[in-house]
Amino acid sequence: MLTQTSAPDEDLMSLYQEIILDHGKNPRNRGIVEDHTCISEGRNPLCGDRVTVTASIDDSNIRDVRFDGKGCAISIASASMMTESLVGLNRDQATQIFESVKSICTEDTANSQRDSQISEKLNQRLEKLMALSGVRKFPVRVKCATLPWYAFMSCLEGKSTATTEIASWPRP
């Protein structure tokens, strides 16, 4: 029988590492921020996944972020980890994290993500998000990881929708 039961390969193990599976199965901050100041929906038209991000932003400070929606383990885990990583940051810091996450998901050089240009506080948060780097080996799954982040950025910019088709295709 041609069952191909060899050990799961390293790329898969890196994609589905424990922290991703944990956040995928037990997502944090799922729901809606009751007193949200912005709301945005992210859509991946290729697979039909949708994620709604709500946030409450006071002056420039992010007080709360939640997400709702259905999706694969990668997108749910990414959304869950995102909500944990943004609270307490200001707009500029959130934008910096967003840019770093895009690099983490797409660039091999992201291993050296500890950027001396950004603060220790951000670097600590980015370290956790490095778990998302497993998608680099799976180009079609990059959108799964970045969708909630694009939705959050739309939220931050006061737009109501974000789509991965504009966000990441064609790929750079």
Binding site: C47, A73, F138, R141, C144
Partner: peptide, 29 residues
């Protein structure tokens, strides 16, 4: 307990090509 896209990614690494998604039939899904 597993989303179709995650399953399809793992199947692909075993050489198995299946489709995952709404199959261009969203209203049916």
């Amino acid at each position: 307990g597993a989303h179709p896209h995650d399953v399809a990614t793992i199947l692909d690494r075993s050489g198995v090509c299946v489709r995952a998604g709404h199959h261009c039939a969203q209203p049916l899904m």
